[in-house]
Design a protein around this nucleic acid. Sequence first.
DNA 1: CCCATTTGTGCACGCGCGAGCAACAGATTT
DNA 2: AAATCTGTTGCTCGCGCGTGCACAAATGGG
Lengths: 333, 333
Amino acid sequence: MDDLTGSITADDVAEAAGVSRWTVARAFKKDASISQKTRERVLAAAETLGYAPDLLASSLASDRSNLVAIITNDFSNPHKLVLLERMTRLLSEAGWATLLIHMSDSEDASAALLAASQRRVDAAVVIGTRFDDRILDTALGARRVKKLVIFARYSQNPNTLTIACDDVQAMRQIADHVLERGYRRPVFLAGPDTQSAKLHRKTAFTDYWHQRTGSTVPAIHASAYDFSPAIDAVVQLMSDPSPIDRPDVLVCENDILAIGAMDALRYRLGLRVPQDVAVTGFDDVPLSASPAYALTTFRQPITQMTQKLIEVLNGTLAHDVHLPGRFVPRLSS
Amino acid sequence: MDDLTGSITADDVAEAAGVSRWTVARAFKKDASISQKTRERVLAAAETLGYAPDLLASSLASDRSNLVAIITNDFSNPHKLVLLERMTRLLSEAGWATLLIHMSDSEDASAALLAASQRRVDAAVVIGTRFDDRILDTALGARRVKKLVIFARYSQNPNTLTIACDDVQAMRQIADHVLERGYRRPVFLAGPDTQSAKLHRKTAFTDYWHQRTGSTVPAIHASAYDFSPAIDAVVQLMSDPSPIDRPDVLVCENDILAIGAMDALRYRLGLRVPQDVAVTGFDDVPLSASPAYALTTFRQPITQMTQKLIEVLNGTLAHDVHLPGRFVPRLSS
DNA sequence: CCCATTTGTGCACGCGCGAGCAACAGATTT
DNA sequence: AAATCTGTTGCTCGCGCGTGCACAAATGGG
């Protein structure tokens, strides 16, 4: 009975139901031209035989795979896990499977896109990773992927669709909050200072701050988006010989850097947060809500962003999207 | 030139190189019978045309897809991110692509396996998730996936291959350490107390502790593997009316619970770690190394486990594997 | 009750490639 | 020189399904 193989094809079901193979296919297709009766009969036969359409063969025959590649190179940020959770869940509910592709270094973009295209993905989504537009360009030129979406990051590349949180709006809210709480000497803690990538959040904050106060915001850069580089950067900053204009608030590009900053302030420098130095982050990773950090941060509308992504996949949306997020004030500022 | 479509097939390359389509295929196959000269000529032609084999068509024609499904339902544990990073990287280096499948609830196992089988995966890997063996059984019965691997967890299911860290060995090292440091009143903090799943780490610890000391270890259960349920569980435990036999160490099933426990002790109960109560975890998530927690924990040999997984995929390994991990003592105990 | 119209169903063909065997050339043996 | 062997290349057939059209069945109006 259950001998070998899941190799029950549409032909088997067709025979069992007394119809042709194509009618079986129609029974599984949402709005196909088929009568209610035969559909039920076919589905019943399929049920008893344990048949399920082979999506691989289907992809080959049609030009849709219902497969989307998620490409990332940064697995050190817990926020990625939140993104992956939300995306895989909503995508699968919408009928899309997910190919997870690890992009080792940013030079590897073209290998990642190649891998995606070899599996005939309908779209590739680069999540939360900032990388060289030139590399992206050459990669795009070489290996065509039908659609390329940059998710939760910005890209100026014309061949690309951006779905992201509105960083400018976000950083303004943070700046307003910081000002309102009376902080006057912010330092911006950003990630690696790559040459070509614009650091949106940083410029958004510093521009707006300058606009409101007339003063410029110094920035420091961690060598990577991770705890300890952030600790190092902050320790170095605060060890500066001139404690007079020591910052009273560290505005960080994301929560990971912010958490590293808090650890540095508390455990390396013996300072109190927020009494001595306040800290703000970005992303609202789960840990930020813990009593240990209680980090003031900003939450991206991931669910809505994913819904927009699905619209893009369905072909009902074809332009960049910037959605508003939600400011989350906590005790760290 | 670059008009439309990556639809360059082996036929195009064959024509360009003046050989047959099958010779093109041979040029791309590692140990195929083909002369050095023609291979170079074919590869050169492929290079200029921008050809890459269509893995979908290849999967359909052969019975290998070089695709493996990674199935999980727990995205709240940062350790998953470490697992995903390592697995996708090593798998891709070994020529395997990764389908990431979200298993919403444990009842959903059969849907997840179905999705995997519809994509013709060569194997499905369930990572770090504990779920009902009965559910697994029915799911396995219904939808055949060639191989099912339980990764970083235990399963008694005979249709399944387990690749995991040796929990018994690990918990003994932790117990030895706890005893050596002079703690005598441990409480074990575990995850949800599901009926059918054996809590390996818990029983491993309590059994060994009983063996060494003759006393039994009380256990408490968080309602989920997450920070706040752990906080709740610990607060409730410590609010017990009898502070006489208050625990002097909390042995936790994993780091997430341990970190929640530390937060509860420090910020809800005003206790010091480790002076008032020590804490140990399991997994060595990145955060555990931060100065804020400095958590004593245990690191699973993820790289080796993934290598074993690859052996299983290649068919050179077909039995359960339990690998030793590494004890990581820090300041929390 | 017939014809126009609307469903509903069947079928030839192809998606891009792999398995496995047949054919062939050159090298070696008898 | 014929027979054999080895390495290399070509080819038939099929993987399981979708597209687009041809055709059959049902429907409705006159």
